[in-house]
Write a protein that binds this DNA or RNA. Sequence first.
DNA 1: ATATATGCAAAGGATTTGCACGGTT
DNA 2: AACCGTGCAAATCCTTTGCATATAT
Lengths: 150, 150
Amino acid sequence: MPSHKWRKRFRGSGSRWTAPREAILNLLSKTSKHMSAKEIYQALLRIYPGIGLTTVYRTLDLLEKMGFLNKIPLGSGENKYELITESDQTHHHHLICTQCGKIIDYTDFVDEELELIKKTEKSLKQRHRFQITDHNIEFYGVCEQCQKRR
Amino acid sequence: MPSHKWRKRFRGSGSRWTAPREAILNLLSKTSKHMSAKEIYQALLRIYPGIGLTTVYRTLDLLEKMGFLNKIPLGSGENKYELITESDQTHHHHLICTQCGKIIDYTDFVDEELELIKKTEKSLKQRHRFQITDHNIEFYGVCEQCQKRR
DNA sequence: ATATATGCAAAGGATTTGCACGGTT
DNA sequence: AACCGTGCAAATCCTTTGCATATAT
């Protein structure tokens, strides 16, 4: 939670430890939700008046490049972001509601999934000569609340 | 290939069988590539001068809702589309190059994947009370050509 | 002191919408 | 005839860029 951890990783990276960056990291580490740039911006306005949406975008880009964040493209052209926590041995996949856009992480059964993924990555590398760097596994559906709303 | 198949599925759907729709379906069934709306529009201009980009978007939306197409969101805010062929027992997943945006379908090893997916869907439904409708499995990496370009 | 970050306003790119006209049923 | 589809232009939405100022190192 305290920002010392992040701060350290900024040292020597060429990038500077600034107030907006700290604010964004703190916010994301508190919410544990997936937020869009605009949502982050609006939430931040309360605790950090005067912050610019531009800064939010630039910070998110930076944090993604530094490996602190994952960017999740929704079909709508909007992106959501999630923090990669240090304890993120708990790799997870996504469950996305097509009605309200809510994203749920799940970690159940990922062991089985991960095993298969490793296998798949290896053979994709051989067959298609791709240098695999990452993967994205998502399930789409309608969440409980949206089901009730019908 | 011939459009009779599509045409049939339009009957009684409330939607009409028109020239632009036929052109788009024909194009997509020929290319077998994943194309963006703009790419489709530009390719179509040659054989169908006067077609509007708006129509392409609206047709793609319609075709997606009718279940003919899959929409694949790239991280960039751009979407690509792929036809779902009748013989699409050959369900496939994606291999996406992060350098050039190229998308490769693969069908190898999907049997194993599908088995796991079924299992996963079932338990996600139970645990999170999601009504699962679809999934998306993608691997990211650098394709052979882009590796050489470095 | 010097390079990097910030905020604003403007630009950009993809997609959507309003509206009058044209084509299918 | 009635309704749906089309094309154009304008509008939206999310994101990026240019530039002068402020800030971190």
